[in-house]
């Protein structure tokens, strides 16, 4: 019976996330998913770029966007990408405690980013940019909001892993899970690079 078997400890392999077939499958399938996500965001970017000048008398990009706020949000997300890189490095090193610490740091930075985004949307709504005010408004909220939903999902995902595996140590089961969550987090940052450039910088300067 399985429950009577003694747990035999495994030796830490150099890449624990890819040491099992399941881990390798998750890795490849997750990249397949990210390829699809690229197309999802591509269509939202295309819609926004096609509609961004139709403000219908409502507030436009140059009236609303504040570069200092966007700069802070960009730096928070970029730093959270680096903390999740450190988490993976510590996982490969076999240092479970530091893996958890860096992952929690990533979660906290993600929450900080979300806080700024909620404040930003709240401010815009106050300045008269409701979702249905103009084609610019709805395409803007859909694009940036979909990204924000991804950040929310990423925060919940990583938090779930951190609570579920708070005491387990690194195993061949959870190493691929942490690794794919980190890939997802990097992808969120990749999308944000396009958002701050195409939406905010072009909105103010173009």
């Amino acid at each position: 019976m399985a429950q009577n078997e003694a747990i035999t400890p495994q030796i830490l392999p150099p890449n624990p996330e890819k040491a099992t077939l399941e881990g390798r499958n998750k890795y490849l399938a997750f990249w397949f998913f990210l390829g699809g996500e690229t197309v999802l965001f591509g269509s939202l970017f295309g819609t926004y770029l096609g509609l961004r000048s139709s403000t219908e008398g409502g507030p436009g990009p140059a009236d609303l966007f504040h570069l200092d706020l966007v700069f802070i949000m960009t730096m928070i997300l970029l730093t959270s990408s680096l903390t999740s890189v450190f988490a993976v490095i510590n996982m490969k090193r076999g240092n479970f405690k530091m893996l958890l610490v860096w992952m929690w740091a990533t979660v906290i930075l993600g929450l900080g980013f979300l806080g700024f985004e909620i404040y930003e949307f709240y401010e815009y709504a106050h300045q008269g940019l409701g979702y249905g005010v103009s084609a610019f408004a709805s395409s803007f909220y859909t694009l940036v909001g979909t990204h924000g939903a991804h950040v929310t999902f990423g925060v919940l995902w990583i938090t779930t892993l951190l609570i579920r595996y708070r005491k387990s140590g690194i195993t061949l089961t959870n190493a691929p899970k942490f690794y794919t969550a980190v890939l997802y987090w990097h992808f969120i940052d990749v999308v944000w690079v396009f958002i701050f450039t195409v939406v905010y910088l072009l909105g103010v300067g173009g």
Binding site: I7, T8, P9, Q10, L12, P16, E22, G169, T171, L172
Partner: peptide, 8 residues
Amino acid sequence: VDPSAPLE
């Protein structure tokens, strides 16, 4: 291989 065993 028990995948839930902690890696040591």
